[in-house]
Design a protein around this nucleic acid. Structure first.
Lengths: 335, 335
DNA sequence: TTGTAAGCGTTATCAA
DNA sequence: TTGATAACGCTTACAA
């Protein structure tokens, strides 16, 4: 029970080891005829190169890391699906690593991962994408990295993002267009820059419509069901409760719905509820919910694509499957 | 910018390379004094051994695979968390690989993963745990593997599981104890053996209580919100609707709740709803929901622990953090 | 208890 | 366009 090696393939194809390696790595200067013979031998022997040997001998490990500190299963699942899909296309492997952005061991954890696995690149999802110590460490090591939806220090780093300010503005304007004047906002987790961006968009739309900003209509939240539920309770208990509630995530929107139902408030008859469809949850929980689609999976795909583009040998893919996603090496124009 | 190697450590500690290797691998026959000197040097140099080199030279890769074909983000998230936690403790890495159990390329996909990464072991989650072609391939390759919650061929393979029949029986008996005589059941996805097991437990409890089995009270479902919602609609539209509904997963239970609320049926006043808390979702959506706790995370931890136990060099952990989880190499007694 | 030497399966360098 | 040979950083034998 011994392993099939490149030697077996070269023997079978009647060429040298190095030539097989050339074919495997899609290098130039291999005659069409030779290439076909080698590929046939590879298929016939069902040969799969040892990643360990490639990593040790070569300059690349064909592995990238996905670092997150995010307790939202939907987000993680979809992000992994997106990054994983692009990796598979390019023959790379994705190494998923949870972390704690507040731990003093953060940069050690990331550093040892890079050292041990010889990662070719790193993807940072929020809120790690804004963890300055981690970013500094990656810069110092000169390892390619891409940040997903970063909120700070946008200069000179690659990132894939969605324009949260614009999206929140759009949604708020939509609610205003329905005739609402008192619109509650359930904010996201304070760790996430997206939370602030969504607040900015909300205020922006109110101002444009000449509606005064009322702080009592803004409730804190943590992006999860429970906090959405609690926030709705507070909002609906006000002397002058809102006629519409805009939640900064779909999980919180679901929480708002749960509270509304418990209080006997009909949705959307007596109360309009809107949210960001970060996780595809909203559509399932309550189809008539008004949502802004946030394609997490596409964000992940775009991030991986951007990262793999550092390696010019990887074929570049067109990113047109989700128009809302923009992959860029520069900060967004609109803010 | 060159890599810190074992040579650097051995120089710093004033010993041979082999001695450093011994310390790193916790081998016997290293004097306390030497070990301390080496460990100090490792820490001082912030040395992290190359996994690629260890894999290439040694018999182990320190990597295990987690194979799944499961669209439930909560399940995947918690399973990864459990497996990942045990791996981290043991200094292993978890490689996550989605697959398609109905694809003809299934065994090729798994096989090439094993070959490329030289995996030390594999964990199969439902429904892959019951995919015969995959199991055969793993047997043929003589690679250690553990099945999570297998439903078939329990003989002679390691697996971590929960006794679904007993759990469903318990829950049904509980509902009967509350005075219910017409209890609806929303079944799980047909791909999962757990679905059938839960039906068995349901029928078992009914029979013991002398309650006749009524097929119209059993609705199909797919373990997701939408099908739970649809099933509840069908059940509640019956001439003699159930007074309690037992959903085979918490996502479906949430769907049942949504439908009940939409129809103006108070829960738990007019209808009792129960479910398996597979994903921790139920507790959040509707705290008064009656649930049987299914600690997916613990199942994953147990599976990884079992797998790593194949390597006698890995320290065995006590599995007492979740009493409901049993890790075993034999089939469950109760069925 | 410690050290020496060979080799793991690939890629990089250089020569043909 | 191809091939020989030396790394790559570690573990496994085996010797001391």
């Amino acid at each position: 029970l011994t392993r099939t090696t490149i030697k077996d393939v070269s023997d079978a194809a009647g060429v040298s080891i190095k030539t097989v390696s050339r074919v495997l790595n899609k290098e130039k200067y291999v005659s069409e005829d030779t290439r076909l013979r080698v590929e046939a031998a590879v298929a016939r022997l069902n040969y799969h190169p040892s990643l360990a040997a490639r990593t040790l001998a070569g300059r690349r490990s064909f592995q990238i890391g996905l670092i997150h500190d995010n307790p939202n299963p939907y987000y993680i699942y979809n992000m992994q699906a997106g990054v994983g899909a692009r990796c598979r296309e390019a023959g790379f492997r994705m190494i998923v690593q949870p972390c704690d952005i507040h731990s003093p061991a953060l940069i050690d954890d990331i550093g040892s991962l890079i050292d041990q696995a010889q990662l070719d690149g790193i993807i940072l999802t929020p809120p790690v994408a804004d963890a300055a110590p981690a970013l500094e460490e990656l810069e110092r090591r000169r390892i390619p990295f891409v940040r997903v939806q970063p909120g700070t220090d946008l200069t000179a780093t690659s990132s894939s993002f969605i324009d949260n300010v614009q999206a929140a503005d759009d949604m708020t304007a939509y609610l205003i267009g329905l005739g609402h004047r008192r619109i509650g906002l359930v904010m996201g987790h304070a760790n996430y820059v997206a939370s602030g961006q969504r607040l900015t968009g909300y205020r922006q739309a109110l101002q444009r419509a000449g509606i005064g900003f009322d702080p009592v209509l803004v409730q804190a939240g943590q992006f999860d069901l429970q906090s959405g539920s609690a926030a709705a309770e507070a909002l609906l208990a006000l002397d002058r409760p809102p006629t519409a509630i805009f939640a900064s995530s779909d999980e919180m929107a679901a929480g708002v719905l749960a509270t509304a139902h418990r209080l006997g408030i009909a949705v959307p008859g007596m109360l309009s509820v809107a949210g960001f469809d970060d996780t595809d949850l909203a559509q399932v929980v309550w189809p008539p919910l008004t949502t802004i689609r946030q394609p997490i999976r596409a964000l992940g795909y775009a991030a991986a694509d951007l990262l793999l583009a550092f390696d010019e040998r990887i074929e570049r893919r067109r990113l047109d499957h989700e128009l809302i996603v923009r992959a860029s090496t520069a900060p967004p124009g609109g803010g």
